[in-house]
């Protein structure tokens, strides 16, 4: 699907990093910084916020095997894509640790096959999708979406997947179905963050998210099973995740095992944790700041290193207002943030 894009955020083609220039981030320097600056003090903690303290976490050598997928290609984007290496190494997926590089380092042996995604709740035809169904039941297309994190950085990602509405239509919702509730896999053995509060950032797992029915049925709302032409790596939410491009990234729940249609607004993980900071709707909105970050602008992660001038204005609904603004016509978005 072609998404029209305004040129404000357009970056030059030559700013795309060659994959080969990207080097493994768990580099010697973090260890040196750790030894130099804090060896006396920090041995009790491992990686999280500061990144420089992950000296003690083990490094995995295996790399998760991704498969190529057949899909309908998207129109070329006028926006510079975030290089694949960055898309798969800069992730908020606290089930595998709280620093951005933890998921790629801790998730490579994650098992996605067999998988079971259960569609249930207020539906006439509940059903379950197995691993292979995720890639064969619905036609897979490429969609190039902007991803805006609540932490005020963003990426442009070529996802592969299908509209969530396909699943919902197949389940045949009853008249009571007003919301859709999502749940991530609950597997502490595979997910270190679910085993330990320290690694998992103090979140109550499993991670849960939700959408209003009309949001879920919007054609933009994507169930993604891949990116950059291949199946998803675990750090990006393999084997299947949600992508809601007009909402902050934390709404786009990863590694989903349950989709349940419900009558009442379902609980959502970050809202439970800090209701004043994270609302149910979480629409990208430059006019409403997060207590800790201005949301008026963002840093677009592409390439170019420290001196990349990558701060751009944030657009209402992340630039997808044409497609989704009508969903919120009579709502006060300052109150329903």
């Amino acid at each position: 699907m072609l998404i029209k894009v305004h040129s404000k955020s357009t970056l030059k083609e030559n700013e795309v990093t060659d994959e080969n220039t990207y080097i493994n981030r768990r580099s010697l320097i973090k260890k040196m910084g750790f030894l130099g600056a804090g060896s006396l003090l920090a041995s009790a903690t491992s990686s999280s916020h500061a990144g420089g303290l992950d000296f003690f976490s083990s490094k995995e050598d295996t790399v998760f095997a991704r498969k190529s997928l057949a899909f309908k290609k998207a129109q070329p984007s006028s926006e510079v894509l975030t290089p694949e290496k960055k898309v798969i190494s800069h992730n908020n997926f606290y089930e595998f640790g709280t620093s951005k590089s933890d998921p790629i380092n801790n998730a490579q042996s994650f098992k996605v096959n067999p998988w079971k995604l259960t569609v249930s709740g207020e539906v006439n035809k509940p059903f379950t999708l197995g691993y292979d169904d995720l890639f064969t039941r619905y036609p897979i297309e490429e969609r190039i979406y902007r991803l805006r994190c609540v932490e005020a950085w963003s990426m442009v990602v070529p996802w592969l997947g299908f509209s969530l509405s396909n699943i919902i239509k197949q389940a045949d919702p009853t008249s009571k179905a007003k919301y859709v509730a999502f749940e991530t896999l609950d597997d502490p053995e595979q997910m270190p963050g679910q085993r330990s509060r320290r690694v998992g950032g103090g979140i109550d797992y499993p991670y849960v998210e939700g959408l209003r029915m009309d949001e879920a049925m919007n054609p933009l709302t994507l169930m993604s099973v891949g990116l950059y032409g291949k199946t998803l790596p675990p750090q990006n939410g393999a084997p299947i995740r949600l992508v809601v491009p007009w909402k902050y990234g934390f709404k786009s729940i990863k590694s989903i095992v349950g989709i349940k249609l419900v009558e009442k607004m379902p609980p959502t993980t970050w809202n439970i944790l800090a209701a004043k900071e994270y609302g149910f709707y979480a629409n990208v909105n430059p006019a409403v700041d997060h207590p800790r970050w201005s949301q008026a602008s963002e840093r677009r992660i592409t390439s170019g290193g420290l001196f990349a001038r990558n701060r751009i204005e944030t657009l209402p609904f992340n630039g997808y207002g044409e497609e989704v603004a009508h969903l919120y016509k009579n709502m006060d978005l300052r109150k329903h943030f």
């Binding site: 990093t17 080097i23 320097i29 500061a50 190494s89 951005k100 840093r299 992660i301 990349a308």
Partner: peptide, 15 residues
């Protein structure tokens, strides 16, 4: 040189 992870800005700020 853009060799400090995906977001060198965050990395240097935290470091």
């Amino acid at each position: 040189n853009d060799e400090l992870g995906a977001d060198p800005v965050e990395a240097v700020i935290h470091f």
